[in-house]
Design a protein around this nucleic acid. Sequence first.
DNA 1: AATCCTTCCAACCGCACGACG
DNA 2: TCGTCGTGCGGTTGGAAGGAT
Length: 272
Amino acid sequence: MGRAPCCDKARVKRGPWSPEEDRQLRSYVQLNGTGGNWIALPQKAGLNRCGKSCRLRWLNYLRPDIKHGGYTEQEDHIICSLYSSIGSRWSIIASKLPGRTDNDVKNYWNTKLKKKAMAASRASGAFTAPGTPTALSPDASASSSVTSSSGDVRFAMYSQPQPQTQGLIHFDAPPCKPQTELAPVPPAAIALDGTGGVWASEPASHAVALDDVFLPELVGGDQLFPYGDFFGGLQDRTLELSACYFPNMAEMWGAASEHAHAKPQGLCNTMT
DNA sequence: AATCCTTCCAACCGCACGACG
DNA sequence: TCGTCGTGCGGTTGGAAGGAT
């Protein structure tokens, strides 16, 4: 027996939002905020919608700082690089792209960027495609691709756990040069001290242990970062990585007052 | 013009997690 | 410590829109 549903699905409206509903939600949130309670919000706002639906609509569509479409090459590179290193952690990837939402990035990857990346990687000969039997497992039957009712080719889940690298695409991602439109890297950016085990900042008193810096699942028991080669070598890419994997990125963002405005909304304080 | 096919994306679903009583 | 609740996340789906035949 699972937990009770968040709302009575039979009584709330579902499906596409009407302009009137959008207007109601937008004006309510702008006037009152969310009140920290999305479940109670629909009733207060006079909407016959599930709280989760309201939250999703606001975060993915109605927020004033949302961008839709028009992805730049720079954003493409960031998405590809992060996807190849951390996989489908869309919220983390989106947090590196101001104005983008996890849903938007996910859709963009699934519909456009994945194909683009596959084509590019295939051309360079460094390609292992998700769902490609030879790339996944000696036991090709462990995975399959399916065609959905709507016609999309959608990859089925592996029937057995796969090492993360096997389902990922390898890129020769060009260096991501800083651009003003991108979220700034927190000033705590660090450089590898050369020992492979400890990361040192400037000044050296801020040295931190490797497992304090990276997401635990990205750091093997032997303290080796398993996906560093996706960035063309970890040592040269510390600026980009530091912004992605600091466990308390939001706190650092806040600490860097001049960059505080760039902290993406909804960014978790701890990335677990 | 009609039909079929493909692409795209908004929205839904269920699960995991943290906060709180 | 445990149960409940709200939130956040990633995977999945439905259907509209546009292209191809």
